[in-house]
Design a protein around this nucleic acid. Structure first.
Length: 601
RNA sequence: GGGGGCGUAGCUCAGUUGGUUAGAGUGUCGGCCUGUCACGCCGAAGGUCGCGGGUUCGAGCCCCGUCGCUCCCGCCA
């Protein structure tokens, strides 16, 4: 007989009755009846009830066992009587009658009980991650993650993609997020950087003549975390293809994502891969107030600046401002507190408030109610109702600001909030869309200059010769240029960001020149890539869906830590392994480093 | 860097207007119990109220500072 087990704790069935078996696992739960002890033994595969009576030789030893001890138990499989069958257990028709027992590992009093589905503070969970991972929810999530990654790999390979590894120790990139630096021992004062993404490498792979690359790629960014953004590190399904248009990339990626969501989505409806709506960035900002709209939310924002601008509408607070109207279907009869609460929330977000009108039917005519309703009457009111698609029984909220961006942002947040308050967001579907036509540049008001708005390596949607002839002073034209850049959004989460790349060295130098980089500066910073583009670069493009977020959505979780095996805290500490930690004097000396601590004020 | 929430027994939490010896559940330990599957019953031990300072006759509670976890803003090409 095997030293530890003949079966797993999830294996035994009625057909095994009468055989002698050996199980190993953790004590999930112990029920001591004095003359009779039940132990639920748990392993990766399941739980089996084991039982022992006082006359058995192993009783004294089993009597000492406590929760989370690791035991090896040997004995006969017996059938349970009809009234003692546990339908909640796969092994519930049988139990193990313990004849021999061995303790493989004892457990101290637990800082974090494994049994049960209680919630525990993050600090405890992270310090004792190995215990937390034993619990059903995390164990299941981590297995789901593994299944999803396996499926993604298979789907990519089936589509003719090949997985390549790219360096982890590489050069710092001047654009984008803060880098993690690794000091060089052999080159005093010089540093490697961990890649923020394999962006330049995958483009070089295309220039090198490989086609259809992918990688389950670790990415490192020294930026603060959020519930949907791990601090420090995360994984992307990084991919790149040669000789492709934007449509080709869409056609390759959408089936992979939709397929994985159908496979692991637990029966929730998934947008068909060839029916992802394509929403231009500008339209998304107008209709949803964000570039990552949750399309499950039926609310669509409309611009009503023109109506508030009319002479007969005497509501001064909204004059000469961008005014966005957010319909709240069915909210008309809500109590005053509903509207006050939203108004208060908007103030908390730094807005002046959130004006509103309630629409009612009075003798067949549509009338407005509420604090500002008296300013909007007659044609203005009916035009507004028509534009926003509201009727009697609905309400309309207003987000107004002199700056269009701010009006749009607040409207977007209000849309989400109202959708939630009114229970308009069904939890039964995964709604995908493409956000396309991102602007290439944006105006930096602080520095009074033109910046890249997203990815500097994207190809501008602009005639090549005209682009090369652009004068950086021609601000309006430049700010109107769109890029072949696109995101995949699902249920309000940005899952993926990608682009058709700029593989033309002249256009690239010009693109950076417009953003304020001198030619020789760009040449120096992106030497490797620009040099490669001068030796025969194919048109190429790709994208990189975030794996952690995909798993999070499919697990129904709202925090990435729930789908990450060993996550860090929000402040980027690993409480289990105790990282970061100081380097010793010898290490520092070898690396030619001296630490200068910040002064305490 | 900024704002909000939380921090009390091994664990999860309660703790009134500042007032006697800081409570409950769970776990642990001891006793009883032969069919439980959140087993049950009886008893016991277990506390730097995150840390430091202040106000007060008296602080878990009020004030100031600080640390940790968390959510959000900034940041994330």
């Amino acid at each position: 007989m095997h030293a530890y087990r003949t079966h797993t704790c999830g294996a035994l069935r009625k057909s095994d009755v009468g055989t002698t078996v050996r199980l190993s696992g953790w004590v999930n739960r112990r029920r001591d009846h004095g003359g009779l002890i039940f132990l639920d033994l748990r392993d990766h595969y399941g739980i089996t009830q084991c039982v022992i009576e006082p006359d058995a030789a192993a009783f004294a030893l089993v009597d000492t066992a406590r929760s989370e001890w690791v035991l090896t138990l040997t004995g006969k499989v017996v059938a349970r009587s009809a009234e003692t069958i546990n339908k909640d257990l796969a092994t519930g028709e049988v139990e193990l009658r313990i004849e021999q027992a061995a303790v493989q590992g004892q457990a101290q009093e637990l800082p974090l009980p494994v049994f049960g589905d209680h919630t525990y503070p993050e600090e405890t969970r992270l310090t004792y991650r190995f215990l937390d991972l034993r619990r059903e929810r995390l164990h299941k999530n981590i297995m789901l993650r593994a299944g999803i990654i396996t499926s993604l790999r298979r789907r990519m390979i089936e589509q003719g993609f090949t997985e390549f590894q790219t360096p982890i120790l590489t050069a710092s990139s001047p654009e984008g997020a803060r880098d993690f630096l690794v000091p060089s021992r052999r080159y005093p004062g010089q540093f490697y950087a961990l890649p923020q993404a394999p962006q330049q490498f995958k483009q070089l792979i295309m220039v090198a003549g490989f086609d259809r690359y992918f990688q389950i790629a670790p990415c490192f960014r020294d930026e603060d975390g959020r519930a949907d953004r791990s601090p420090g590190e995360f994984y992307q399904l990084d991919l790149e293809m040669s000789f492709v248009t934007q449509d080709d990339v869409f056609a390759a990626v959408a089936p992979v994502l939709a397929g994985v969501f159908e496979e692991f989505g637990g029966g929730k409806a998934v947008t068909p891969h060839d029916k992802f709506p394509r929403i231009p960035f500008a339209e998304a900002m107008l209709k949803y107030g964000t570039d990552k709209p949750d399309l499950r939310n039926p609310i669509e924002i409309v611009d009503v600046s023109e109506i508030f601008g009319r002479a007969e509408v005497e509501f001064k607070a909204f004059k000469a401002k961008t005014v966005r109207a957010i319909p709240a279907p069915g909210a008309g009869p809500q109590p005053r507190s509903f509207f006050d609460k939203l108004n208060e929330w908007a103030r908390g977000e730094g807005a002046a408030g959130l004006g509103y009108i309630q629409f009612e039917d009075e003798g067949g005519a549509l009338v407005g109610k509420g604090p500002i309703a008296k300013f909007i009457t007659g044609a203005a009111l009916t035009d507004m109702a028509k534009a926003a698609g509201v009727k009697a029984g609905d309400a309309l909220f207003f987000s107004a600001d002199a700056k269009p961006d701010r009006a749009a942002n607040l409207a977007g947040m209000a849309r989400t909030r109202i959708g939630r308050e009114l229970n308009l967001i069904p939890d039964t579907e995964f709604k995908f869309c493409w956000i396309v036509d991102f602007p290439m540049y944006e105006w930096n008001e602080d520095d009074k200059k033109i910046d890249f708005s997203h990815n500097p390596f994207s190809m501008p949607q602009f005639d090549r010769e005209k682009f090369l002839g652009l004068d950086p002073a021609d601000k309006d034209t430049i700010l109107g240029i769109k890029a072949y850049q696109y995101d995949i959004v699902c249920n309000g989460y940005e899952l993926s960001s990608g682009a058709i790349r700029n593989h033309d060295p002249d256009v690239m130098l010009k693109a950076f020149e417009i953003a304020g980089y001198a030619r020789d500066e760009t040449e120096e910073k992106f030497k490797g890539m620009i040099n490669a583009f001068r030796h025969g670069a194919p048109p190429h493009g790709g994208t990189a869906p975030g794996i952690d977020r995909i798993v999070m959505l499919l697990a129904g979780e709202e925090n990435l830590r729930e789908v990450t095996m060993f996550p860090m805290t929000q402040s980027a500490q690993d409480l289990l392994m105790n990282a970061p930690s100081p380097a010793n004097a010898k290490q520092l000396k070898e690396l030619h480093l001296r630490v200068v601590y910040p002064e305490k004020s």
